Amino acid sequence: MNRSATDLDAHRRAAGLRSGAQAASGHLPALILSAERLAAMIAPGAHGLRRSGPGEDFWQYRPASQGDSARAIDWRRSARSDAQFVRDREAQTAQAAGLWISAGQGMGYSGGPDRPAKADRARLLALALAMVLLRGGEKVGLLGQPARAGRVQADRLAEQIALAPLKDGDNDAPTPDMLRPNQRLVILSDFLDDPAWVDALLSRATGIGVTGVLMQVLDPDEEGFPWTGAVLFRSLSGATHHDSRDAAGLRDAYLARLAERRDRLRQRALDAGWHFGHHTTDQSPAVALSWFYQVLAG
């Protein structure tokens, strides 16, 4: 029996999807290994709530009060004075962190074979940070998906991050309705598109108690604009282009616009109680990961 044209089309689409998934998943072991090595450089630990309660870390000594049992008294500390003291521990709880990695076509850019594409570096940082947070007992998930704890979640995130394709267009942005109250977000993007989405996202975040980090990931070429002479500038999607006969003459204006964009992002993040950082793909990812961990633990 001959297959119908519809069946053949469906078969070809399925085969194409399988082929694409196999090609993408070929990078999965390397991504996991690199992320695990990177995460191992950071000492993980649960983030305290800065109040007394169940936990392992010392928080403060306080004078004993009515209702404290004899077992709660720290007799060694109390022996140094005429008063009795209780050793409080800091309350700890699993916190939920959401990750979002831009999938715009521009994130696929690399200015040379000696450095990764922006998307690859962003994926590495996101997965390594997830591993650190998960080891500290926290819940982590991609933005818009459930945050979970445990080693299985690390494997799940690795697969989701590695298999996520870039979009057809240059722009990509999370929508404010993806936010959930009281979570922490990590947003990785080159932030070279229209920044209006950042304003909308942070306005919504401020209203529902969401805090987080904006990390701008750029290629060194985008950071320093090394081009001279006649250059055809074209977005990776092909949607926009500019033919310049004197690229060097554009450098000062470009660098001024980049600095202005960065200052705006930094100020907007500060106003919302967020953090802003930037990273270029020729820098050590360990420096960026350490910064991530410090600001999220602060």
Rank of each mutant, 00 (worst) to 15 (best):
A126N: 02
Q145P: 00
L33E: 12
R234P: 01
A297L: 10
T6S: 11
R121W: 01
A14R: 07
D9A: 15
L214I: 10
T206D: 04
S78I: 05
R71C: 00
T228W: 02
L163I: 10
A40D: 13
L8K: 14
G104V: 05
W227M: 11
K118Y: 04
T93N: 03
W59A: 07
G141Y: 08
P63Q: 14
G150L: 09
D199V: 14
S19W: 11
A70D: 12
G144W: 12
P195S: 14
W75Q: 04
A43Y: 09
D246T: 11
Q95C: 07
G48H: 09
D199W: 13
L289M: 06
R18T: 11
R156M: 11
R80F: 06
F225M: 02
G26E: 10
G277Q: 03
G67K: 09
N2D: 09
R18Q: 13
L166C: 09
A130C: 08
L17K: 01
H278N: 08
P181N: 15
R245F: 15
I187K: 00
A96S: 14
I101T: 04
R261E: 05
A94P: 12
R62H: 05
A91C: 05
A119R: 11
P29H: 06
L127H: 10
P174D: 00
P226G: 12
H278P: 01
L192Q: 14
P113S: 09
V231D: 02
A239I: 07
R71W: 01
E56L: 07
S19P: 00
Q105F: 02
R156F: 07
V287Q: 03
V231G: 04
Y254L: 05
Q216E: 14
T6F: 12
R184Q: 12
K139G: 07
S25N: 04
R123H: 09
V186L: 02
D263F: 05
A94G: 13
L202Q: 06
L125H: 10
M215G: 00
P220A: 14
G298L: 02
A247S: 08
G137D: 00
D221T: 14
A15M: 13
T240Y: 06
G20S: 10
F292W: 12
E222G: 00
L185P: 01
A158W: 00
T6Q: 12
R62T: 09
L17H: 04
P285K: 06
E260C: 03
T228S: 07
K139A: 15
H27Q: 12
Q105S: 11
A39S: 00
S81M: 01
T281D: 01
H11Y: 03
Y293N: 06
T228D: 03
R268W: 06
D57Q: 14
G249A: 14
A162N: 13
R245A: 15
S34V: 09
L236R: 15
P181G: 13
T93M: 12
A149F: 10
N2G: 02
Q92E: 10
D68T: 05
R204I: 06
A10L: 05
R257D: 06
R268V: 15
H11L: 03
D177K: 01
E36F: 02
L133N: 08
G106H: 13
K167W: 06
A286I: 09
H242M: 13
A162P: 03
Q183C: 13
V213K: 05
A164K: 15
L255R: 02
S284V: 08
Q60D: 13
S52C: 08
L250C: 02
